[in-house]
Design a protein around this nucleic acid. Structure first.
Lengths: 338, 338
DNA sequence: GCTGGCACTCGCCACCCGGGAGTGCCAACA
DNA sequence: TGTTGGCACTCCCGGGTGGCGAGTGCCAGC
C-alpha cells in the first residue's frame, strides 16, 4: 500500500521533470497529480525514495529529480508503451511507402523517427547476411580497371572498383564472370564467400581473378554497408539547452563516427523488444546524460539492423519507445514485402 | 599613403577579431601589429572606416568589429590565399588516394575539408551530365518487380526498383533489356534520354517497357545523385559558442535539407576560382552571421559538382579558401584519372 | 596630419540582500 | 504505525549597486 504510493510518487516526479525540466517539489506534486495525501506525506516518501537512490536533489532544499536508477525503474515497471494514434500510423505508412529503394527506406525512416520523437534518430543500414547473390556484373571502365557490381536478393547493390594487374578484353571478362557466377549465384552470402575461397584461377590468368575475388569477398562481408548508420534530427540537439559544450559536443562528434553509433545502438533485439539504455549504463562516459532507445528490424523474426534514438536521459520514454517500435515494425513489414 | 594605412588597420582588425573573437581596440592594435603610429591616429582611422561602413562597434566605447562589407573588402583586396604546407598536401593526397569508389571520394573529401578548416564541410555528389551509359542491367527480384541498374562511365551506379504491371519471365526481361541497351548504350546522358523518348513498346508489352523507361529517365536526370550533399564536421558548430539557438539551430536544420545546402553552395565555379559569400550576401536571412566558401570540382575544366565550407562570418578566410581550393584540386585530379 | 592628454561612457563583475520555494523534523492525531 | 500541520532552516535566484577597466571622441600642440 505504502509502497505503491511511493512508486506513484516516483512516476509523478519523472513525468513532471520530463515535461518541466525543473526539479519537482512536494507541494507542486500533490497539486498537479491527484494523489490524495498531504505534501508532508509526500516528503516522507521522497526521503525514502532518495534513500533507495531513485531520486536526488541538485542542491539542498530544492526539488527532486530522478536518478538513472529512478528512470530505470520507471521504464521497467511504471510505464506501458503508449500506442501511436491512428493519424501517426497513417503518417508513418504514407511516408515509408513512398520509398523507391532500400537506401531510401533507411533515409526516410531516420527522418521520420527524428520527427516523431524530437530526438536524434539513428538507423543502421541493413546487414547483408541473410541475402543471396542475385546477380554479378563486371564492367570494364578502362583497360585495366573493372567495376564489380554485386546485386543481392535484398535489393542491395554493392559496387567496387578493381585495378587488375593487366589488360583484359571482353572475352576474358566474360569468361571470368562466368566462373564467378557459377560459384556464387543463388547462394547465401556465407556460402558464396566460402565457395570463392576454393576457387582456383586458370594458369594464364595473371592474378586478375584473385583481385576480383578479393573485392567480392570484401563486398560480401557486408563490411561497409552494415557499418553505416543514417543520422537525422541533429537540430533537436539545440533543445538540450544547458550544458552545451559538455553534452552536445561529444554527441555531435560521435554522430560522424559510425563505429561509435553502432556501439550505441547495441545488439539487435528481435521480437519487437525495445531496449532502453539510460545514462551511465551505456559504454561511453561522455554520454552519461544521454539515453538510447533502440530496437532491431528485419523481415520476419530475423534482425538485419537496428534503429533508435539518442536523447537526454530526461526524455519522454513511453512516447519514444512507442515511436521506435512503430517505425521498426513498418520498416520490417516493407522488408517482408520486398 | 593615409589610405594604405587605413586598409592595414582594417586588415589588422579582421585578423585580430578572427583570432580573439573579441572587439579590438586601438591600443591593443598598435601593440600587436607593428604599425608605427600612435593609438590616437588609429582611432582616427577607425572613425573613418566606420564612416565607410567597414567596421562597427557593438556598443558605445567598446572595440570595433568588421562588418560584412569589411570582410568583403578584406577578402577581395587584402588577402592572398596562403598555400598549403607540404605536410598538408601530403595528408590530402594520402587520404584521398585511399578511396575505393566515387562515393568514397566524396565522403573522404568532406571529412578532410572539415578537418582542415575546422568548419562544417559540404561536398556535392557529382552530377551525371557528362557521362555516357556504360551498362544496363535488369534483375528480377520478384515476379512483377524489377531492379534497374544503370552504370555510367563516371563509375557511378544508379539503381531503381520498378513495379511493372504484370509478370515477366526471363526471356521477356532479356528482350526488353536488349531493346533498351540498343537505344542508350555508349551514348551520353542527354542523347540517351532523348533516344528513350522515341522508343515505342511492342504491342504485347502491356506497359512494362514504359514503366522501366520512366525510371531510367528519372535515374539519368541525375536528379537524386546531384541533389545529394555530403556533410561533415558538424561538431565544429559547437565552437560557435554564443548565440547558439539563433545561429546554430537553423544551420543544423539546413544540414538535413539538401536543397538548401545546394543553394548555399551556389553555382559551380570553374578554373580554380573560389567563391566567398559573406553573411547577408547569401540567399537566406537565417544565415546572416555565416559565410560560405565554395568552389567547383571536376575533371579538366568541366565542373561536375561543388564543395565548400560553412562557418561564422568571423572565420579565417585565407586559410579556408586555401583548403577548399586544395581539396577541389585533388578531387578533380582523381576524377581526371578515373 | 600625427600625437598626447583628458574627460566620458559603458559593459563587466563581484557583492549584497530579500523573497520564495522547498526541506527536515517534530509533535499530535487516527 | 502512518499521516498531517506547523515551524525553523537552507539555499537558489533575481534585481540592484558600485568600482574597475577598456575604449572612445575631442582638443590643443607640434
Amino acid at each position: 500500500m505504502q509502497d505503491e504510493r511511493r512508486l506513484a510518487v516516483l512516476r509523478a516526479i519523472v513525468e513532471d521533470y520530463v515535461s518541466t525540466r525543473e526539479p519537482v517539489g512536494s507541494k507542486a506534486l500533490v497539486e498537479r497529480h491527484g494523489l490524495g495525501v498531504s505534501p508532508a506525506t509526500v516528503r516522507n516518501d521522497m526521503a525514502a525514495l532518495e534513500e533507495e537512490g531513485l531520486i536526488t536533489q541538485p542542491h539542498t532544499s530544492a526539488g527532486r529529480i530522478p536518478t538513472d536508477k529512478g528512470y530505470r525503474l520507471f521504464v521497467d515497471r511504471l510505464t506501458t508503451i503508449k500506442p501511436m494514434t491512428a493519424a501517426e500510423k497513417r503518417a508513418i505508412a504514407t511516408i515509408l511507402d513512398g520509398a523507391v529503394d532500400l537506401d531510401d527506406v533507411v533515409q526516410r525512416s531516420v527522418r521520420l523517427l527524428a520527427q516523431l520523437t524530437h530526438q536524434v534518430a539513428l538507423v543502421q543500414y541493413p546487414t547483408l547476411s541473410g541475402s543471396t547473390v542475385r546477380h554479378l556484373e563486371l564492367v570494364s571502365l578502362a583497360p585495366t580497371r573493372v567495376l564489380v557490381v554485386l546485386i543481392l536478393s535484398s535489393g542491395r547493390v554493392e559496387q567496387r572498383l578493381v585495378e587488375v594487374g593487366r589488360e583484359l578484353d571482353d572475352d576474358g571478362l566474360a569468361a571470368l564472370r562466368g566462373r564467378l557466377v557459377a560459384a556464387i549465384n543463388g547462394r547465401i552470402i556465407a556460402d558464396a564467400t566460402a565457395e570463392l575461397g576454393t576457387l582456383t584461377a586458370p594458369p594464364d590468368d595473371g592474378g586478375v581473378q584473385d583481385a576480383v575475388v578479393d573485392v567480392l569477398v570484401d563486398a560480401m562481408s557486408g563490411h561497409r554497408a552494415s557499418d553505416r548508420v543514417a543520422v537525422g534530427g541533429t537540430a533537436n540537439l539545440a533543445r538540450f539547452g544547458d550544458s552545451f559544450e559538455v553534452s552536445v559536443r561529444p554527441l555531435l562528434e560521435a554522430l560522424e563516427e559510425h563505429v561509435v553509433l553502432l556501439k550505441l545502438l547495441g545488439e539487435a533485439q528481435t521480437g519487437g523488444l525495445v531496449t532502453v539504455r539510460i545514462g551511465h549504463e551505456g559504454p561511453y562516459q561522455e554520454f552519461a546524460s544521454t539515453s538510447v532507445v533502440s530496437t532491431g528490424y528485419g523481415p520476419g523474426d530475423e534482425a538485419v539492423g537496428n534503429l533508435g534514438v539518442v536523447g537526454p536521459t530526461r526524455m519522454d520514454y513511453p512516447g519514444t519507445m512507442a515511436a521506435v517500435r512503430a517505425v521498426a515494425r513498418y520498416v520490417s513489414r516493407i522488408l517482408d514485402d520486398a
